[in-house]
Each structure stands twice: as C-alpha cells, then as structure tokens.
Amino acid sequence: MKRVFVINHSVRFDPLSRMLVVLDRPEVMVQLHTPASECLRLLVSHNGETLTHQFLSEEVWEKKGSYVTANSLYQNIAAIRRGLKAVGLDETMLKTIPKTGFQIYASIEEEDLPPVIKESSAPLSAPENKAEPLTPRRVIQPMLSHSKMPIKILYLAIFVIFISGSFLLYQQITLNRYHFDSYTHIGLINKCDVYSYYSGKEKSTDIFNALIKSSSLTCPMGGKAWLTFNANYRMSSIVMCDQNIDKDGVNCKSYIYSGDVNEKL
C-alpha cells in the first residue's frame, strides 16, 4: 500500500512520486524536489504542530549525512509554497513561526492506495501541462562531452561558485539574522564565543580549530563566530562578528572554505 495525503479535500500529495495533483483536474500537477517533498511530508504528518528548524534539518538532511545552512531550509519551504499555490491552494497555510520553525494548518486526510495504481506515470509523461512553468523544478544542463574542459571555463566555474557562496552568506546575515538562533552554543574557542549549525560539540570544535589554523584568523575582543559546514560538498563557512549578530552596528566578516581543510568532515 502507498500512503498519500489529501489536502483541503482538493489536492493529493504523494510523497513517493513527490507530486501534488489537483483531484478534479489531474492534468494540473507539480513535482517537488526531494528535500522539499520530505519537508512537506513531515509537516502534513504533524498537521497543526510547529516543527522546529533543527527537527526538519535533522530529519531531511543530517540523518542522511548532509549538513545545510538555514538558508537552504528556507529555500525548500519557499518551493513548497510555490507548489501549493500552483495547484490552487492557499500558500499561507504553511506558516513561519518566527525564531522557531514552520507549521501547516489545513484539512489533511491520509489514504492508502493499492500498488496497482500508477497515478504518477501519466502525469509525468503528459504532453501538455499548464502548471508546469510554475513547477519548482531545477533543470540540469547536460555536461560537456569533451574530456578536456577549456581552462577559462574552469576558472569561470570556480568564480561563480565563490560568488554564489558569498551571496548566500550575505542573505543569511542581512535578511535572516534570526536563523542563527537555531545554532548550538559550542563554547569559548581561541578567545572566540562559537556557535555551530551542527549540534555535535566535539566535531564542531575540531572543524573550527582546523579552519582557524588554516587561515590564521583572529577573533576580535569579545567576538562571536557562527560555523556552518557541509560534509557532502566539502564546503565550510565562518561568520565572525564583534558582538551579537542581532545588535545594531554589528561588524561581521564571512569566510568561505573549500577543499583540503574539509577532508576530515
């Protein structure tokens, strides 16, 4: 049997196929990315409950060995809202609880469908789909077939990755400062008050010390640092400030790391 959810008596959500389908107009559908679908499954399974940032991050990413920033979680929540809107639901049913997490409050019915029903095959091959432009789907371009990539293209790719990482950190600091409230306090390390997105204090301490040593960073007097790292992509970042990040007049600098220093993650 396959477990599906009916939202507000009008849209069926199938976590297995990651599809949102309008019941009386099955040609109108949206397919979510896997993390967004997992977040939505947890939210509808806990209808009316507030799920914290930490809970969602652990269930969707950390239990699978990935560690992502709060900004990644918010991007997936935004994708869910776009999907709900595309199939005619009120996107405001998915509420943000400030400094805590997220909540769905709606009419949710669970159904068990027999395995012989293959509802996902027809929508995926449908020749026309008016809702498709609104589908939160990432298009992956084909890789270059040449075995030797031109050196200019390689440099350009590295530059784009660096700029993208810097922009995401800028968004975190300027637009979503309260995201850092979910970080775990690790303690005083090298005269710096350190907080980590990952709750494991021992690993966070080792990673922070390794990054500080590799770049010869010095924490300002009374300074604080927020550590984020992703083992899968061998990327880390430190946001270092002269006081609490939510204070007016705070001065912060962000540092992005990739490569060998992350081998131990």
Rank of each mutant, 00 (worst) to 15 (best):
W61S: 10
A79K: 12
Q75Y: 08
Y255D: 00
H146N: 12
L175P: 01
D14L: 11
N47P: 04
S121I: 14
M29G: 09
L169S: 13
V28M: 12
N47T: 11
K85C: 00
N47R: 06
Y67H: 12
R18D: 09
D90A: 06
E263L: 06
N244P: 08
P150N: 12
S120F: 13
I151H: 08
H179E: 09
V250L: 00
N129M: 09
T205L: 02
V28T: 06
I117M: 13
M221S: 14
K191V: 03
H9R: 11
L84Q: 04
L169K: 10
V160M: 08
Q243C: 06
E128V: 12
I153Y: 14
R138D: 13
H46D: 01
P15A: 10
L84N: 03
L211Y: 07
L20E: 06
T228A: 07
P115N: 08
D248H: 10
T218Y: 03
N262F: 02
V261Q: 14
A86I: 05
Y233N: 05
W61Y: 15
L217C: 07
K152L: 06
L168W: 08
D206N: 12
L265R: 02
V30C: 05
G187Q: 05
P133R: 04
T34K: 12
I161A: 11
P142R: 12
K201G: 03
K99P: 03
R18Q: 15
E128K: 07
Q54V: 13
Y170P: 00
I256R: 12
K264H: 10
G48R: 03
Y195K: 04
I140M: 14
V194A: 03
H53C: 05
P15W: 09
K203F: 00
G222H: 11
N71Y: 06
S237K: 02
L227R: 02
S254N: 09
V139H: 07
I245C: 02
L154F: 03
K63S: 06
T69G: 10
I238D: 01
G165L: 08
S216A: 12
L43M: 14
N176V: 00
T69K: 03
C39E: 08
I140V: 15
H46I: 01
M29E: 10
P123F: 07
V6K: 07
S199H: 11
L94W: 03
A231K: 14
P26R: 15
L211T: 07
S237Q: 01
I173C: 01
V194F: 04
K224V: 15
S215R: 15
V139T: 09
I207G: 02
I212W: 11
